[in-house]
Amino acid sequence: MNVFRLAGDMTHLLSIIVLLLKINATRSCRGISLKTQELYAVVFVCRYLDLFTNFISLYNTVMKIIFLVSTFTIIYWMRFHKVIRVTYDREQDTFRYQFLVLPCLVLALLLNNEFTAMEVLWTFSIYLEAVAILPQLVLLQRTNNIDNLTGNYVFLLGSYRALYILNWVYRFMTEKHYRQYLVWISGIVQTIIYIDFFYYYIKSWRNNEKLSLPA
């Protein structure tokens, strides 16, 4: 494993830890999109089906389980925790799942490495991950007072795929049999989606101002 991949994984892990801490410490999920969290749950379930069929490494297995358990914990808190669920911005979090899920499903059926259930679901998870942040970004735009932890969460989540791109460049150059075009294109799309957010995040950080996204 190269340093970019490890940094990407750690950033991804850190983003989830930040989110868990924020919700748990403040007893509030204000500014967090349940739709994005549920889309990530779908992404992880579809991608990590190979937990049952293919052992890669202890690291790999443990990380997959952490991502699954933490995402379902967040969803559980946002839906059912008696204090936290009240703080969910239900009226603002209006993005429609089907606008993201259906195109990704069609694309996965058409563009995949192999037409098998496992492979199509895996490819679907790659496409869906690229766009799953959109409900969260829309919600952030509608939130007047974005708290620091929510901003940091989205920043870390965006950084993770950007670091993966460096990892892919590195692997492309060092590993002969490593040509994952579908993954690369999706990862680049995923990172591009964050560019606007990155711009305002860095600007607010440099000017020492509170983060806000223009509507």
């Binding site: 991949r5 994984d9 991804h12 190979d50 293919n54 890669i56 490494s57 790999n60 990380m63 997959k64 991502f67 490495n113 192999e114 895996w122 993966y164 990892n167 049999h177 490593y178 040509r179 994952q180 075009y181 579908l182 993954v183």
Partner: peptide
């Protein structure tokens, strides 16, 4: 068509 790809990433 791609080769059978290595799925060791998360």
């Amino acid at each position: 068509v791609q080769e059978k790809i290595l799925k060791d990433e998360l």
